[in-house]
Nucleic acid binder design. Sequence first.
RNA 1: CGCGGGGUGGAGCAGUCCGGUAGCUCGCGAGGCUCAUAACCUCGAGGUCGCAGGUUCGAAUCCUGCCCCCGCAACCA
Length: 503
Amino acid sequence: MSRQYITTAIDYPNAAPHMGHVLEKVLADTVARWFRLRGDEVRFQIGTDEHGVKIQRTAEAEGLTPKELVDRNVPLYQDLYKRLNISYDKFIRTSDQKEHWPTVIELWKKLDKAGKLNKRNYTGLYCSGCERFMTKKDLEEGKCVNHKKEPEEVTEENYFFDLSADGENLKNLLTKDWDGEEYRMVPQFRENEILSLVDQGLEDVSFSRPKSSLEWGIGVPGDDDHTMYVWCDALTNYISGLGFFTDKEDRSWWDKPTKVTHIIGKDIARFHALIWPAMLRHSGVRIPDKLLIHGFLTSEGEKMSKSIGNVVIPDEVLEKFKGNPDPLRFYLSHEIPVDRDGDFSWDRIVKIYDSKLRNDLGNLLNRVLVLIDKEGGKLGDVGKSSDLMCDGWKAYEDSLNNFQLDNGLGLAMNITSKCNQYIDEKKPWGLEGDEKVAVLSELAEALRHIALMLLPFVPKTSERMLVQLGLKVPQTLEGKTEWGSEKDWKKVGEPEILFEPLE
RNA sequence: CGCGGGGUGGAGCAGUCCGGUAGCUCGCGAGGCUCAUAACCUCGAGGUCGCAGGUUCGAAUCCUGCCCCCGCAACCA
């Protein structure tokens, strides 16, 4: 038994949540549920990153204050995640002045005290139309894409975090260790990406903005003219949720032997791999253990974008399946390997729903239960083992422990397929007495294992399967994974359609 | 020469590390079954494994060169 602290990136609520947000939460939730099932103690935190110019600007455009905007949008996220059955323990909001701010301010002070924050001038290309600095991406032939005019060179004062000094240390941290601390990335190929960045030379990172250009955020302690920029504010959510540096501090979910895993998208891997550990190191907090980095979702084969008009709204998907989150959860887990980009396609999710969930799984459960029902719902001895288990629990556990979730789910579905073959081969409907009961009991037992294996992925479906089978939903898998481990299991419950046909 | 990922039957993917008859799912065609949600099972058609060289008895798999697609390139999950 070990302790696990799992976090996702915090979402930026300047608009309604989209499928990318969902992908990450479902992934993290599946991992969290798996850890709990295997017997770990788990704390699972998600949240929202609510400051910054973009929120400030969106609010202005909608005639709201930034606070009104986030207070309106954040519940959309919380509500969606509830409906997706995301089993988070804590939702942290960076606008929360009681929970989040004190930790951030203390962290800033610690970094300052360590001599890591220095005020200096920053010069960049500023577009007066956009009222912000431009990046290369915002420019086309040297002109702002939105305003078609050349930005001007503007100099402003920023606090900078001294990241450039830690190139070697960070490289060691990611490959070997930094003063005994290790930090690993899954998948490993991301490591090469980050290391090559380090090799290109790290620059110091801007940690603040003048209040005149960014007001919506946390003020720099002791300097009324500056507002903290995203790094010190947002990344810190992982420890502010634990009350770090306050009288509510709970380090038992951070310090060893607890294992800390950040689950994030590939776009922010560099910040989590470089800035965050450096910040922690220089404020005397231990560095996390693992970064689990997922890919992005395209929609119908193309990058999601408002101009193409292929942005998928999670609510529409939930609605398609009458509010049941499991078809979507199943799709994301089954079709998209954790470390790679994936595609969301309406056509495909419908096919997966019909063939895998409804036909293979739902129909199997139903035909087995109906046959048992006709025999009075009684179960017999299931023997010591069965060929129905395919690769068995070991392969499943290995897959999940290595975050190969699609693989683990595939193993459960293999058993389903095997059962369908078996029932056709044995034709229990043509058998009598003990022989009939034996075949059906074996199938029921296999279905029990399938339901358990599906628990991290599609918890509601698993629970319904277990109830129909006449079993309780277990908290952990301890003592449940042996063939025939339910000694007192003599009778099944009522058969019920697991997945209705779509209209 | 910025960095990374990928190119395998109509579609989506596995196999590539540790060379040895090319596999899975969906779709398609034929047959079977009738317990079940018009579901299930079996068989079949369909691929010169991006291109070109090389190593080898043998290459999707190793080496070299090239082409194409996608993402990232400091604040878009």
